[in-house]
């Protein structure tokens, strides 16, 4: 049997984790309870953080969005967050069914650190800083430094995910995801693309096609030079197609029971091409 501490403040959560640094953190439970029910995990110590008010906070400023670790997928879709971080809302909509989206949280998606975690490509494309707190105080890191392998994070014993801080660039955001049916799916391939008309950059990150959440940095640089930033002309088919190929080169997919490496690489190219065309349609984009 597990002992469970239900924390009602950030202090209580930190205290409980300081006391049991190897405790498993339970937020919405949409990943953890599945693993427990399947007998894959049997945590001895659990710290429940669903009732920690500090983790549910989010805020939107001119150029920054802060999303607390306890913010649910439903909240990402239905609050002002959806306007401030549209790709996050789009990704949240692809997660499970409404009951799952009511329970599951951003912090849980980060903590599980699955390559198929739907919000993770969005966080990568929005240059997220992951804020964690623990016995050694607060630490901040990019997603690359947070997710260090398949379902592996750089969280240290006793540390808790507090929030993610995201860019709020001027430009369109797109999240696209493929699954084995049209809703309620684990990703076979996913992609987030963000246009930043001030920095004149395009940022693109991939889900479910590598051990981590790769950014297609070469493709980003290549395409930024081919965007008509001044006049807003639509991106050409040729550029969009080549961008797709270059994005696909950033993927290192595998064959598994959900799909094949060949399909995933192909699909990522198609998704990237389409996302770029949507983000840079004629006259579109910078007002989005």
């Amino acid at each position: 049997m597990s002992d469970v501490v239900v924390a009602r403040s950030l202090d209580e959560a930190q205290e409980a984790l300081a006391h049991q640094p190897d405790a498993t953190v339970l937020a919405g439970g949409t990943d953890l309870m599945v693993e427990i029910n399947r007998g894959l995990r049997r945590p001895r110590h659990v710290v429940g953080v669903a009732q920690v008010p500090e983790l549910h906070r989010w805020s939107v400023a001119d150029n920054r969005v802060v999303v607390g670790a306890g913010v649910t997928y439903t909240e990402m879709m239905t609050t002002a967050l959806a306007d401030a971080a549209p790709a996050l809302a789009q990704a949240a909509r692809t997660v499970g069914s409404p009951p799952i989206r009511n329970a599951g949280t951003l912090g849980g998606n980060l903590g599980t650190a699955s390559p198929a975690g739907d919000t993770l490509p969005v966080l990568a494309a929005l240059n997220a800083e992951i804020v964690v707190t623990g016995p050694d105080g607060e630490r901040r890191m990019g997603l690359d430094d947070f997710v260090v392998g398949v379902k592996q994070t750089s969280l240290r014993p006793g540390e808790l995910i507090v929030a993610a801080e995201l860019d709020r660039p001027r430009g369109r955001q797109e999240f696209l995801k493929i699954g084995p049916r049209n809703a309620m799916v684990i990703s076979m391939a996913g992609l987030a693309l963000v246009a930043d008309h001030d920095a004149r950059t395009v940022r693109c990150a991939l889900g479910a096609v590598a051990a981590g959440i790769p950014r297609a940095r070469d493709a980003e640089v290549w395409v930024a030079e081919r965007i008509d930033w001044d006049d807003g002309a639509a991106v050409s088919d040729a550029v969009a197609d080549e961008f797709g190929q270059r994005v696909a080169a950033a993927a290192s997919p595998i064959d598994d029971h959900r799909s094949t490496a060949a399909y995933r690489r192909h699909a990522v190219a198609v998704l990237a091409t389409r996302a770029l065309k949507r983000a840079f349609a004629q006259g579109g984009g910078d007002d989005a």
């Binding site: 692809t94 999240f175 493929i178």
Partner: peptide
């Protein structure tokens, strides 16, 4: 997009 292939995954426009 829920009426289109890919559904909630936003993969597909009618032209595709």
């Amino acid at each position: 997009r829920r009426d289109l292939p890919g559904g909630s995954g936003r993969t597909t426009d009618a032209a595709d």
